[in-house]
Amino acid sequence: MSMTPYLRPGLAKPAPSRDGLDTPFWEGLQQEKLLLQRCNGCNRWQWGPEWVCHRCHSFDLRYEETAAEGIIYSHERIWHPVHPALAEQGPYVVVLVELPHADGVRIVGNLVGDPHQPLVIGAPVHAVFEHHLDDDPVHTLLQWAVS
């Protein structure tokens, strides 16, 4: 399922880091899967991408699929454009989503829908995969919608 991009085109496009640290995450999004890091030493989830487990210092972190649903941990409605691509955008919403199925790690995305909608901390949200398959580089953004 594809959707109209939430933001106007022209912002920097995400590419996997050269060292490969977050490649499985970006590849997973293209297949509409949310893959995050989980430690083989202590079995805890960890995000953002890092080479070592912050808890047990294991270097053995795998990418594992987790449910692409969470709750709004915090939010912001942005009005002032700080990039030319957003000059005609109008307000837009960024949310920080907490993932209860992955030890409560957090991930950033846009909240799709009316940019003037009420923003409620604690509201349940689910993922919307925003594919940019004709883009260079090909990528998929992980967006969120109120459930």
């Binding site: 933001l7 912002l11 496009k13 995400p14 953002g48 991930i107 950033v108 995305g109 846009n110 990528h139």
Partner: peptide, 8 residues
């Protein structure tokens, strides 16, 4: 890459 493309 995990924030900028979302306008953060």
């Amino acid at each position: 890459a995990h924030t900028l493309p979302y306008g953060l």
